[in-house]
């Protein structure tokens, strides 16, 4: 039996490979991400002016509202189009998290509420939660130790 993997054709594959347009994608991500954050800031300001939230406490409800908006957009089938255009611009803000959760939930609705939606809703967002909690734990540990030793 001969070696089935042929290591050649590097030149052919790379010659025709299409790279992601990095600069263009960065600009798009910057603009769209900026717009999403501006909307978020608008929500914060509205919450501060019309509801009893301070700059400190307005953060959490703002996040909820932004996630809710992205859930609506996902449900209407618009967020994936935005995602294709904006890339990281729509994935990095918290709206991307909402989209990851809801898209998985919609996708697996056909397998039922328990095993389908329940089991798969964090298919994509689960790793964000896991590594978010893990890194938060270690950061808190480091901070506690530094305070204990009097560095901070």
């Amino acid at each position: 039996m001969s070696q089935q993997k042929e290591p050649l054709f590097q030149a052919e594959t790379s010659r025709h490979d299409k790279k992601r347009p990095l600069v263009k994608n960065c600009i798009k991500a910057f603009v769209v991400g900026g717009i999403i954050c501006t909307i978020g800031q608008l929500v914060t300001v509205l919450l501060i002016i019309y509801f009893p939230f301070t700059e400190q406490t307005a953060g959490n409800p703002t996040v909820s509202i932004m996630v809710f908006l992205s859930m609506l957009l996902t449900g209407f089938g618009l967020y994936n189009k935005l995602g294709q255009f904006a890339g990281a611009g729509s994935a990095v803000p918290v709206t991307g998290f909402g989209n990851a959760v809801v898209s998985a939930a919609i996708e697996h609705r056909s397998e039922g509420l328990v095993l389908g939606v329940g089991g798969n809703i964090f298919k994509l967002a689960g790793s964000v939660i896991v590594y978010g909690v893990v890194s938060a734990f270690f950061l808190a540990l480091i901070k506690t130790l530094l305070i204990q030793w009097g560095v901070l």
């Binding site: 992601r20 449900g75 995602g83 294709q84 729509s90 994935a91 991307g96 809801v102 898209s103 697996h108």
Partner: peptide, 10 residues
């Protein structure tokens, strides 16, 4: 998932 807003490469 179909509605996930990930960017596909060219």
């Amino acid at each position: 998932p179909t509605e996930y807003g990930g960017q596909k490469p060219p």
